[in-house]
Nucleic acid binder design. Sequence first.
DNA 1: CCGTTGCGTCAGAATATTCTGACGCAACTA
DNA 2: TAGTTGCGTCAGAATATTCTGACGCAACGG
Lengths: 186, 186
Amino acid sequence: MSAETDTRREVEDRFIEVWGEISALWGVNKSVGRVQAFLYLSAEPQDIETIGARLQISHGNTSTSIRDLMGWGVVRRVHKPGDRKQYFEAEQDPWTWFHTTIRERRRREVVPVMERLHAAAGFAEGFARAAKGLEKKELHELHERMGRFADFAHEFVDLIDAFLALGHGRMAKFFRGMARLMPRGK
Amino acid sequence: MSAETDTRREVEDRFIEVWGEISALWGVNKSVGRVQAFLYLSAEPQDIETIGARLQISHGNTSTSIRDLMGWGVVRRVHKPGDRKQYFEAEQDPWTWFHTTIRERRRREVVPVMERLHAAAGFAEGFARAAKGLEKKELHELHERMGRFADFAHEFVDLIDAFLALGHGRMAKFFRGMARLMPRGK
DNA sequence: CCGTTGCGTCAGAATATTCTGACGCAACTA
DNA sequence: TAGTTGCGTCAGAATATTCTGACGCAACGG
């Protein structure tokens, strides 16, 4: 193995490990993140055995991680004609990947949560109306706080939707301009 | 205990549990999220014993969760004159809380990760320059991919900075307008 | 000073998550 | 048809995270 191949491996490893750690930080399994990183760095689609051998993880773990990544829509299956093996490739544009991930998290996490918050707030409102005296005041305050949070959640979803609706090109340009005009948050 | 008090408890519980689950989803400990939610809903600052009793968690867990929340800057210690107990209150404005959290995650997670990515990309670049022939081509491609990702990471930080620099009021207004003009991401 | 209360810390227990490897089926080949 | 390869699945093992409760110190009161 040449010095250059060793170097390539070392550089890849750094990227893969960093990406694995970020993934864990954001609630995504570390192996899943490492598989995605490796596929991102690979010029060619890779098969499960190669991926597992490269990342030192079991065949089962590799297979499950790939399934997750396809569920998130950031990894695709590739068939090579005359080859029974399955090959996988990662989305190559980071912004596209990010966009897809946000859309999926919106669908899976944000929307269901908002529905539950609204249900609870509505529940509180109903009782606040019905209650009397001191307890009415308490329930009213509770309802007010929950309503404030529900408003925030609603605006938050609008923010996500705006991000999803704008192409990342325009979005990035807009933000880059903004960031230059404003003092940085330290 | 009156029917209204029971109701209040049930409404609070729903909110607290939802918030605990979101927290876990975003890499924040569930107990930490529940404590924050309870403090957010409480009109008055609360002491550790009360919090633990309400959420059915141990004194140690409560204390540690409070420490975390203060580290994130979203919970404050409150002294009551003539009382040796410590009371705690949560940030009451959700946007302020969100802003603070983003700033902190930027500092703790995003910036260190970017530094490591840049280091790895620079490393790759150096070797790409030095290598010859076929291996030079491979290292060059690797460097190109890593550079593409580093660019994305840089724009991502700009996006965060723009968010932090704009007051949430203007930001929300801008996005609300945007969301109305654009088709929704489903 | 001695007893009490408040609470931060942390070792070890409890729990949750992740990972491995064996199983089984499908697709192919001899 | 028997043998081989590829790979999805999932029970149980391995690992990581979270939680509890005991300890210790500080602040106070009698």
